[in-house]
């Protein structure tokens, strides 16, 4: 009898130990995954795929601190193991806790560490209305105005053209002005056959708040040559939009469209 009691107590001790173990390493493991991913993204210059550059310094400093704590947790791990078996855990709860923690850790490790970093695609852009916001218009418009004053239209970015177009769609103002725009191809929602946007995402904080902006390009049958999400450089001049369906009053009539590599900083700020 007494021998049996010992066995039960021992197994309880064992399960409590494992559940505590799973819980203890769950937080450390997830922190390790996030911290390593952050440092690696920072080191390879890809942090901008996820967050605004003004957070780079803070994020990397905190990641470095996190890394110190993660390694320190391993350093002190032995004393935790020795003091863990305080709580009583049922085998079912134990199985749940260990499997849950394990699964979460595995999924986190695969998605955060194994899948290559990527920029947002048109799937998100179509969920959000193009040119509906996200622009800090006064700054962009001022910059744009300076460049327009110089007659230096080709240096205007997608963002600057969008803020100019938001202020006026008077064709006379844009006549004879040639634009050179780099962005990804995003079909117009109202006239996808004939019009696509040269689009970028504006990020104010992190990719979650990314708002698509873009300059419309009129080219019937564009989808025979260019695919959605492909990066292109379009050169052309503004004309009243020949499409009867699209909302934009002006569109670029392309002189040349070249395929280009995705820039290392795909978002604009």
């Amino acid at each position: 009898m007494s021998a049996r009691r010992t066995t039960v107590a021992d197994s309880r001790r064992g399960t409590g130990w494992s559940a505590g173990l799973a819980e203890h390493w769950r937080g450390i493991g997830l922190s390790l995954v996030v911290v390593v991913a952050t440092v690696w993204l920072g080191a390879t210059g890809q942090l901008g795929l996820y967050i605004h550059p003004r957070y780079f310094g803070f994020t990397l400093v905190m990641a470095a601190l996190g890394l110190v704590f993660v390694v320190a947790s391993f350093f002190f791990s032995s004393s935790f193991l020795a003091s863990a078996p305080a709580e009583r855990t049922s085998p079912r709860r134990l199985a749940l806790s260990v499997t849950g923690s394990g699964m979460l850790l595995l999924i986190a490790a695969v998605t955060v560490l194994a899948i290559p970093p990527a920029t947002l695609t048109s799937a998100t852009a179509t969920q959000r209305e193009v040119n509906s916001g996200g622009l800090d218009t006064t700054d962009a418009a001022e910059q744009a105005a300076t460049l327009v004053g110089n007659g230096d239209y080709e240096r205007l970015s997608v963002k600057e053209w969008v803020s100019l177009l938001a202020q006026s769609d008077d064709p006379a103002l844009f006549a004879d002005k040639s634009a050179k725009l780099t962005g990804f191809v995003l079909p117009d929602t109202d006239d996808p056959e004939n019009v696509f946007y040269v689009a970028r995402f504006v990020v104010t904080c992190c990719a979650v708040d990314a708002q698509p902006i873009g300059v419309p390009v009129y080219l019937p049958g564009w989808s025979n040559t260019y695919t959605t999400d492909a990066w292109v450089e379009v050169a052309g001049t503004f004309t009243p939009n020949p499409s009867g369906l699209a909302k934009a009053a002006l569109a670029v009539e392309p002189a040349t469209i070249e395929s280009v590599e995705q820039p290392s900083d795909p978002y604009v700020y």
């Binding site: 922190s31 996820y50 957070y55 994020t59 400093v61 992190c206």
Partner: peptide, 9 residues
């Protein structure tokens, strides 16, 4: 991931 990387620090 952007929410996680933004919030974790």
């Amino acid at each position: 991931l952007s929410v996680i990387i933004e919030s974790a620090p």
